[in-house]
Nucleic acid binder design. Sequence first.
DNA 1: TCTCACATACTGCCCTTTGCAGTATCTGGT
DNA 2: ACCAGATACTGCAAAGGGCAGTATGTGAGA
Lengths: 204, 204
Amino acid sequence: MPATSKPLTATAHALLGLLALRPWTTYELAKQVQRSLGWFWPRTERKLYDEPKKLVAAGLATATEQHTGKRARTVYAITPEGRAALRAWLDEPSAAPALEFEAMVKVFFADGGTLAQLRTTLDRTRKASEARLAVLEQMVEEDQSEHYEFAGRLAINALALRFHLDHERHIISWATWARAQVETWHSPTDAAGWDWSAALQAPR
Amino acid sequence: MPATSKPLTATAHALLGLLALRPWTTYELAKQVQRSLGWFWPRTERKLYDEPKKLVAAGLATATEQHTGKRARTVYAITPEGRAALRAWLDEPSAAPALEFEAMVKVFFADGGTLAQLRTTLDRTRKASEARLAVLEQMVEEDQSEHYEFAGRLAINALALRFHLDHERHIISWATWARAQVETWHSPTDAAGWDWSAALQAPR
DNA sequence: TCTCACATACTGCCCTTTGCAGTATCTGGT
DNA sequence: ACCAGATACTGCAAAGGGCAGTATGTGAGA
């Protein structure tokens, strides 16, 4: 086991976290990431096929080849060194949360286009967020139904889920509010006496 | 001007949006992105030196070399084609907002470590978010003071600013709430009878 | 006047990550 | 028997991040 080469990325540690729960095939890992981890650490499926190999190279996981007929698949499992690395990583300070919000870029540069475009952007933002909220609420129901695979994790799972539910609700309520504000505007640069200053005051 | 090569990225269009306001040197662009755009479209300074070159290659911007003594600098300005491209982009559907929240990964895998680690992660999250909120509130004050460079943009600026103020407030209030919840836990997997189910119900 | 910190103005390099296309095999339903 | 959809990957090009390195300009204080 190579003692130290380069510090692993947060992505590597995130996968280590999943492997700490149980062994997974890469395909399962990809599905699981999409379902849970993806809400706060989104990564493409492609990445999830490369990353575990690095964990194995670092001695933090093992890879076992299995077969379904003549189709091979790789099952990854965490090692004691992997658990130690995960535990150590939990002490590290985290990067600040980063939000990529393309629709907000379009709102911010709305003066490069029309009021109709701004309104459409806000409407689409609300609708898309409502769809994601529905998915999250489905997950709440699934947690409620007894047979959840990782019963001991229901509490910490609830902490995270709670954040994301409110996060989507916040986007929806902002988009709804903003849509109402721009209703009376004359153009993206002429808010027709709208009190933007007051809009920045009320904390709720 | 090459009619169409490849569709430009959201990053390219975001810079086009800034150039639509006025010409900028790359250095100014980098500072401005850090101040405003960076909150919802974070990009490293490095990228901002490469990207405008592509805009010039696509005929959407012009580059003018200037000199301060013997030190050169490049000033970028938008072209009519650039304004048209920006206008057209405002019609496109946007990618879903993506949140990268490393601290949440640590919360989610808290059962790989200790309760003390979980508490520390939550405390740090709250403190860091409070610091960012203070920066945003400073920006509100600056907007309030008359001499803002882009007076016509105050309204759309307020829409965006309002979102981010509440976004940080949401993180702070979540971290504070979660910290209080874990106070009575026995371990990351033993919530000592804590009602995680109820925690997922109350919409506020 | 000199100096030194800080601001301005970039480039190179390597790694991470994305997006998309391509190649197989296996399973279940009609 | 067929076929859609799930499983299980790899290759490649481009976007993006992090960090080090190289200059020059400016202003404040000694």
